[in-house]
């Protein structure tokens, strides 16, 4: 292109040069408008993300002293149910007896509890399938085929380490961050 223009003499070449420069400016101006419009989309979309007050970590303290072995309680953490369960030795034994290789989401009971407090199973009460609250924490509720938790929505069965054993849920019930402040109290969050 350029060679042809040069062969035709200076004036048309300068003209073509001008046309190219003008095209460039026009494209640049439209691009700037486009980039500006796209940048404006960011705050419009980002405003729907959790706001600072929601993100501010809410902490809860749970008193364990009233929970007898074999009992569980349901409490609320970040607007979601939290299960706290005092496992009996039999339940712990049952959980430890399962070969890890057979699990859909392989984890040992020890990995899901704190050292020295392996009878305290603290998990979110949110089924990993589609977010229903599983049964089994309240007295007399159906604990499913494996004696842990049972989600009635789509039939997921969790064992005594709250690991998924049967049904559509893909992973074990989530274990939140927590620490023991005393032997009978935990701070979650």
């Amino acid at each position: 292109m350029a060679a042809v223009e040069h062969s035709e003499g200076l004036a048309p070449a300068a003209e073509a040069e001008g046309v190219r420069r003008r095209d460039f400016i026009n494209v640049a101006a439209v691009s700037f408008a486009g980039v500006g419009g796209a940048a404006l989309l960011y705050p419009l979309i980002n405003q729907m993300n959790p706001s600072a007050d929601v993100l501010a970590l809410a902490q809860i303290d749970v008193d364990l002293s009233q929970i007898q072995p074999g009992q569980a309680i349901k409490t609320i953490f970040r607007k979601q149910p939290l299960f706290v369960r005092n496992l009996t030795p039999q339940e712990m034994q049952a959980a430890n007896a399962v070969p890890i290789s057979e699990l859909r989401d392989p984890q040992t009971l020890a990995e899901r509890t704190k050292e020295g407090h392996s009878n305290w199973l603290i998990t979110m009460g949110v089924c990993t399938h589609l977010g229903c609250v599983p049964l089994g924490a309240g007295p007399g509720e159906n604990r499913g085929e494996f004696g842990g938790y049972f989600c009635p929505c789509h039939g997921s069965h969790y064992d005594t380490a709250a690991r998924i054993r049967k049904g559509p849920a893909p992973t074990n019930l989530a274990v939140p961050e927590y620490e023991f402040t005393t032997d009978t109290a935990v701070r979650v969050g």
């Binding site: 419009l44 405003q47 007050d53």
Partner: peptide, 13 residues
């Protein structure tokens, strides 16, 4: 005030 302080870009909007 929640919009002004907590919502992402809320003050801008």
């Amino acid at each position: 005030e929640h919009i002004m302080r907590n919502v992402n870009s809320g003050w801008f909007l």
